[in-house]
């Protein structure tokens, strides 16, 4: 089986398994997987920016917050059906991200990291400040949506399928975006901005657009999380949320689409297990994983898997080449 065929088979199998899960798992476990899908969308967004385009963001929690609050406020204040709020949250984040991307153009690696880090630290305060809209530190409480069209699904199952659907659409979009001309331009800017410019890539436009798209993905994830958790509060969007996203893309695999799923599984389940040891243990583990992955597996889980699968495919194909 060729490498691409193998990958397609694995993806298909994963989707089939994902569709069966709601009928075998408890509601609590199902909710955890819904959360995994939400994280995966956010991580894909961050990975497009940081992994593929090389712009370091330590503040993507801010866009997640903007998405979540957009949805929460629209539902709470104006009674908009939640389905409509999600694309609105995505569009709003697209605009906000694009606008934040314009000053970011002037900032190289370290400085951009710094500015976004500051954004991540400041966002809970900003949310609390606009108390009239955001409900201050109390946050906003929503109610969980029911399954429409008389479907016999409970709310958790329904939300699971909604998130899975959004995830699949967004992943296909990202895969198409990144594998074609635009994607090559995005990667070229990361690898050598001057050469990219010389080849006719409009660096400024592509970089701010990438920022916008990345923010939109993360914003949609935030919107879904507001619907799934049915609650938003400023202190959940602290700087550690942004760092969690960074952990996710590093562990999952920088500049890899499937890496977002591995990263999401990691940041959802590892802290749960580690919590039993101590309240501080998840973060200690995050830190140690961050550093050891940077030393030993800089391409993350996805990169290492690809390496192994590639070798297997070559072995089974019998066409051994001297690398």
């Amino acid at each position: 089986m060729s490498g691409a065929g193998l990958r397609r088979a694995v993806v298909l199998a994963a989707v089939v398994v994902a569709c069966v899960l709601p009928f075998v798992l408890s509601n609590f476990r199902l909710f955890q997987f819904t959360q995994v899908f939400i994280y995966a969308i956010a991580l894909l967004g961050l990975n497009i920016l940081t992994g593929f385009n090389g712009q370091i963001s330590l503040g993507h929690g801010a866009f997640y917050a903007v998405g979540a609050y957009t949805t929460a406020i629209m539902i709470d204040k104006w009674n908009v059906p939640y389905g409509w709020t999600i694309p609105v949250a995505g569009l709003l984040c697209l605009v906000v991200g694009f606008l934040f991307g314009i000053p970011a153009l002037r900032l190289e690696g370290l400085y951009l990291a710094l500015a976004t880090f500051a954004l991540a630290l400041a966002i809970p305060q900003i949310l609390k400040y606009f108390e009239h809209w955001t409900g201050g530190s109390q946050g906003i409480v929503l109610s969980k949506p029911r399954a429409p069209f008389g479907l016999t699904l409970n709310p958790d199952q329904w939300l699971y399928f909604v998130t899975l659907g959004v995830l699949l659409v967004l992943f296909v979009l990202a895969a198409n975006l990144l594998s074609r001309r635009t994607g090559r331009a995005i990667v070229a800017i990361r690898d050598n901005p001057i050469a990219a410019q010389a080849m006719g890539v409009n660096n400024a436009l592509y970089k701010s657009l990438t920022f916008g798209v990345s923010a939109a993905y993360t914003g949609v994830a935030g919107a879904l999380s507001a619907v799934a958790i049915a609650f938003v509060a400023p202190d959940t969007f602290n700087v550690f949320l942004s760092i969690t996203f960074l952990v996710g893309i590093v562990i999952g695999g920088l500049a890899s689409i499937s890496g977002a799923v591995f990263g999401a599984l990691f940041i959802q389940f590892v802290p749960n297990w580690a919590q039993d040891i101590s309240k501080a243990a998840p973060w200690a583990i995050y830190g140690i994983f961050l550093i050891t992955f940077m030393y030993a597996m800089p391409r993350g889980i996805a990169g290492s898997l690809r390496l192994v699968l590639g070798r297997l495919a070559r072995l089974s194909g019998g066409t051994r080449r001297v690398a």
């Binding site: 090389g54 990291a113 760092i243 960074l246 973060w283 995050y286 830190g287 961050l290 550093i291 940077m294």
Partner: peptide, 13 residues
């Protein structure tokens, strides 16, 4: 990016 990530790792540890 690597250096930033390592520093962040140090921060959380």
């Amino acid at each position: 990016l690597t250096i930033v990530i390592v520093c962040i790792g140090l921060l959380v540890i």
